[in-house]
Structures are given as C-alpha cells and as structure tokens.
C-alpha cells in the first residue's frame, strides 16, 4: 500500500458516497446513467470472484463494499426512485461495450482460465463503463453540481491509480500491462470533463457544456 493507492481507493469510496447522497437528498436519480451503474455492478461482480481468497481485511472489506453498494445503487435507480429515471436520456448502446470487452478479454489475457478471463473482462469494462454517463452528460449539456462532484471523485480515483503504478514500478518493479493500458484509457476519457469541471464548477458556476 502506498499514499497514491490509498488516496485513490478513498476517492473511489467518496465517489460512491457522493452518488448515494445525491440520490437520497434529491430523492431522484435524474442525470445519472443507469447503464453506467449497471456496468459497474458487472465490473465488481466479475472482478471479485476471488472474494474468498484472503489478501487483507482491507481488501476483503472494500470488495464487499463495492459489490454491495453497486447493487444497492441499481436497486435505488430501478425500484425505489424508478419514476425519476428517464431512459430516453440514457441511450448509449452498452451491448457493444460488453461484446468488445469480452472479445478483448478472450484474446488479450495473462492466462486463459475462466476466472482470469472474467477478471480481464472486468478491467476492460471498467475502462469504458463511464461512457454512457459521459454520453448522457453531453446530450443534456448540463449537470447538477453534486453529480459533477461524483464524476470528479471517480476520475480522480483513476488518475491517482496511474501515479500508484508509477510508484510501484520504481519501488517494487510491479508490472501489469493489462491494468496499465486500460487504466490510462479510462483516465483519458475524463480529460474533457476535468477541464470543464475546473473551468466552471471550481469557480462556482453551473456545469454546462460550451
């Protein structure tokens, strides 16, 4: 564990709490892509098939939290606050993402086993899971400030993981190409968002696309 990775994980936790706060406080999931949340649930379930394999208490608790919270968010969006979800805004075709990620995972993996291919699939899928949300944002052209805080925390988590990998490469010669390439792409997807977040939200303005 190092500073970057711990901070990244805490940002990830924070992003989920901000999302839950947004839904509970406004009693609405408007502006949130159900498809992105669905993809995250798929990511966590397929990645943490090794849940029973002991690494540390921290590792196990975080895995349980990520799986449970992602499914809870699906429940909030699909059942509790269903009326506030507008599917006509959430039109990104996730079938292509799922198909492409599965294909890539079958071809580019470390070991061709069931668990390993699903783990690789989850890494690729996480890289692009935010696309339906960003697509929704670009369609509506604006977002509630709290939603942008959620996205910022999520993007910051990814950015900090890049720093963590650089740190780990120099301190422990840790190498993981699959995770690095996917993580770099994932972080790059946030660059436009970061720019507008910095220009607008941090200066007290509403998030609006130019």
């Amino acid at each position: 564990m190092n500073f970057f990775r711990l901070t990244a994980d805490l940002m990830h936790l924070l992003s989920i709490f901000v999302l839950l706060l947004k839904i509970q406080k406004t009693r609405s999931c408007s502006g949130i892509s159900f498809k992105t949340q669905l993809l995250y649930a798929v990511v966590f379930v397929t990645r943490y098939l090794d849940l029973l394999k002991w690494i540390s208490l921290y590792n196990t608790l975080m895995k349980i939290f990520f799986i449970a919270s992602s499914i809870y968010i699906l429940y909030l969006m699909k059942i509790k606050f269903r009326a506030t979800y507008d599917p006509s805004q959430d039109t990104f075709r996730i079938e292509f993402l799922l198909g492409a990620c599965l294909l890539l995972a079958l071809v580019f993996n470390y070991t061709f086993t069931f668990i390993e291919v699903l783990w690789t699939f989850s890494i690729y899928l996480e890289a692009v899971a935010i696309l339906p949300q960003l697509f929704m944002l670009s369609r509506t052209g604006e977002a509630e400030t709290i939603t942008t805080h959620y996205l910022f925390a999520l993007g910051a988590y990814r950015g900090l993981y890049l720093l963590n990998w650089i740190w780990r490469f120099y301190t422990e010669h840790h190498i993981d190409w699959i995770v690095w390439v996917a993580g770099a792409i994932q972080t790059a997807l946030y660059s436009d968002f970061f720019y507008i977040y910095y220009k607008k939200v941090l200066h007290g303005q509403k998030f609006e696309l130019p």
């Binding site: 975080m62 470390y110 070991t111 993981d176 190409w177 699959i178």
Partner: peptide, 10 residues
C-alpha cells in the same frame, strides 16, 4: 506473469 498472480489492487 507475476502480475497475474498477485492481484492485491482493487
């Protein structure tokens, strides 16, 4: 690959 066996990251 050592990386594939040591999945300590989340």
């Amino acid at each position: 690959e050592a990386a594939a066996k040591n999945k300590d990251e989340l």
